[in-house]
Design a protein around this nucleic acid. Structure first.
Length: 639
RNA sequence: GCCAGCGUAGCUCAGUUGGCAGAGCUACUGAUUUGUAAUCAGUUGGCCGGGGGUUCGAGUCCCUCCGCUGGCUCCA
């Protein structure tokens, strides 16, 4: 007899050996049907695994996140089986679970999305067949023999220890796999193939390119639909589509990966930077600006020529080689060095909206998210070592204040010393200690990415979460122990001796282009008033009311607001429709009633109209809303 | 850069087995003077992404270049 302990602490006795299904059935048959795997002494295994001695067991059901991973892994196998039925010459390689689904890589003829219907139909058959999924432990020798004609699988097996190798078989399909898997294929009811792509074997561009087929799966068709709806919502918010529709920016073949900003896009840009400058001045920053073309010698001194050359654009001027800056720091170094500094000057917080160019691979360019030219809201902070903690804390507080203005949540990740790095143990301890000290003082939870820091110092990355739950890394705080050395930076201490300052690079928006794109998607183009390129459009009901509309427009203009009059001789319906499509937050109609009463009819994007709003009161309220950089328009709704 | 898909009017798209380039919106002109999501009529608008080839004939087939889209980190 063996004792099995459940998560609630209860213990049951069973005849040894017993498998998971039998144990689950002893609780209830209904429960057992929802069990997809189990955790035995903290190892995830199949329901069919035999238990031979006392153990702690936790069942994984269709409701657990581990269960979803198991399902998706099995879905990958079902897809592989379907692909092999349809393309007998395809060689399966690997098929892992990823964040929102799964993929499987095959060495096979190219497939396209048009083939999905066929593959999905075959998958449905396999699901309907409810094939039992059977695990088998095999020797390395047998595994290699089984895959004698499949070099990819053989390569994987070669790297495994004998005695730890397992196969999973469902119907006629057997795959090398660690597992665990669902008891049978019938669980894979709600799935969808999403896209195909080329992917290099083991991510190495020198090795063969495989066909990667992505899909996703859920236990429940409703969950699948929810996910597909989310993809659709993201598609609707696509900043490239909205950017064109709202006339914010465009791209042209003559400058791939470099955005052209339109007047409305610049209104948005300037609103973002006005706010940025206000916060940075308040936080004790000074603003600087450095050239974008600098001599090769500077890049050699900074180390970029050696380490970042392939991403840099170069240019020959008067027979001197120069590079267009991919980063602002070397220029910032020159500014720091232009005179001697006392410890009394520190910290120096030198910000720069720096235009940088980076030669990204043509295939990775994507709207404003991945470009070849962009502006960083950079800053270099020079300080004494004992200021690290308070300076980092200051940045974290600045970041929190600024992101919350946009209604963006965020989380922090600390990256520590990588294997290849410069600097002494003591320097790293001091630097990393400063960062963790600041994080503790800041008081929020953070993740640690061990060994993920830059070679020149540890960093904190700030990941924001947008309105539909996607995360983006924007802000970063990087401590740099390399550049102060390379540029021999110093300040004079209390002791009248030269000392090496500590330097950090940091950004809040990151790339202003990219941040703007994220905001377009976050707000779905419906910007809060303070950001909206056109804050209000005034619609005269007929031509005779145009002068009155112009008069009101002038009052908005004098109050510092961005408004315009739609004086075309079009129907009111059409003007309203177009203003709605332009996502202008306030649509103000004026007719005879408004002229005689000195009021406005205020329509908001939800379609609601409030009549008889007094003009002066309204303008004041709009100004208040903009000055407060409110996310909503509550103060206007109560007028 | 590599793989796959795509590129037709300013925008959204149609265009059959290769046989005279189309629609709606936009813009422009005229009429209409409009009370909260498209008033009506007319007129413009095209090197079918660029170049080369096959063919009596190419938007359509082939080659090549450019650009765009999805991927190329997640490890049996």
């Amino acid at each position: 007899m063996i004792n099995i302990t459940f998560p609630d602490g209860k213990t049951e006795q069973f005849e040894s050996p017993v498998d998971g299904s039998a144990v689950a059935s002893s609780i209830s048959e209904g429960f057992a049907r929802n069990c997809v795997a189990m955790e035995v002494n903290s190892a995830l295994v199949d329901m069919s695994a035999q238990i031979r001695e006392d153990a702690k067991i936790r069942f994984i059901t269709t409701g657990d996140s581990e269960g979803l991973d198991v399902l998706r892994h099995t879905a990958a196998h079902v897809m592989a089986q379907a692909v092999l039925r349809l393309y007998p010459d395809a060689q399966p390689t690997i098929g892992p679970v990823v964040a929102d689904g799964f993929y499987y890589d095959f060495d096979m003829e190219p497939v396209s999305e048009e083939d999905f219907a066929k593959i999905e139909a075959e998958m449905k058959k396999i699901v309907k067949e409810k094939l039992p999924i059977v695990r088998e432990e095999v020797s390395k020798e047998r595994a290699l023999e089984f895959y004698r004609d499949q070099p990819y699988k053989r390569e994987l097996i070669e790297e495994l220890e004998d005695g730890t190798i397992s196969f999973y078989t469902q119907g006629g399909f057997t795959d090398l796999c660690r597992g665990p898997h669902l008891p049978h294929t019938g669980f894979v009811r709600a799935f969808k193939l999403l896209r195909v792509s080329g992917a290099y074997w083991r991510g190495d561009s020198n090795r063969p390119q495989l066909q990667r087929i992505y899909g996703t799966a859920f236990f429940d068709k409703k969950e699948l639909k929810k996910y597909l709806d989310f993809l659709e919502e993201a598609r609707k918010r696509d900043h490239r589509k909205l950017g064109a529709a709202l006339d914010l920016f465009s791209f042209h073949d003559e400058a791939p990966g470099m955005a052209f900003f339109h007047p409305r896009g610049m209104d948005l840009w300037n609103a973002l930077l006005d706010y940025w400058r206000k916060e940075h001045r308040a936080a004790g920053y000074v603003e600087t600006k450095t050239p974008i073309i600098l001599h090769r010698s500077l890049w050699e001194q900074s180390g970029h020529w050696e380490n970042y050359r392939e991403n840099m654009y170069t240019v020959l001027i008067d027979e001197t080689e120069s590079a267009i800056k991919p980063m602002n720091c070397p220029g910032g170094m020159l500014l720091f060095k232009r005179r001697r500094h006392s410890y009394r000057d520190l910290p120096i917080r030198a910000a720069e909206i720096g235009l940088v160019h980076r030669h990204e691979l043509s295939g990775v360019l994507s709207g404003l998210f991945r470009v070849r030219a962009f502006h960083q809201d950079d800053a270099h902070i020079f300080m004494t070592p004992d200021m690290i903690e308070s300076e980092i804390l200051g940045i974290l507080q600045l970041v929190r204040r600024m992101y919350s203005t946009f209604g963006l949540g965020f989380h922090l990740e600390l990256s520590t010393r990588p294997e290849k790095s410069i600097g002494t143990d003591e320097q790293w301890e001091n630097a990393t200690g400063g960062l963790t000290g600041a994080l503790e003082a800041y008081g929020a939870d953070y993740l640690i990415n061990e060994g993920d820091g830059a070679f020149y110092g540890p960093k904190i990355d700030i990941h924001i979460k947008d309105a539909i739950g996607r995360t983006w890394q924007c802000g970063t705080i990087q401590l740099d122990m390399s550049l102060p050395e390379r540029f021999d930076l110093s300040y004079v201490g209390k002791d009248n001796e030269k000392h090496r300052p500590v330097m950090i690079h940091r950004v809040v928006y990151g790339s202003i282009e990219r941040f703007l794109g994220i905001l377009v998607e976050h707000f779905a183009g419906r910007f809060p008033l303070w950001l909206a390129p056109v804050q209000a459009v005034i619609l005269p009901i007929n031509d005779s009311l145009v002068p009155f509309a112009e008069e009101i427009n002038a009052r908005f203009f004098n109050a510092g607001l961005r408004t315009c009059v739609d004086d075309r001789t079009e129907s009111l319906n059409k003007k309203v429709r177009e203003a709605q499509l332009d996502k202008v937050p306030l649509i103000l109609t004026v007719g005879e009633k408004e002229r005689s009463a000195g009021t406005l009819a205020v329509r908001t994007l939800d379609g609601a109209v409030r009549h008889g709003v007094a003009i002066d009161t309204f303008i004041n309220a709009v100004c208040d809303n903009v000055a407060a950089r409110s996310l909503g328009m509550e103060n206007l709704m109560s007028l």
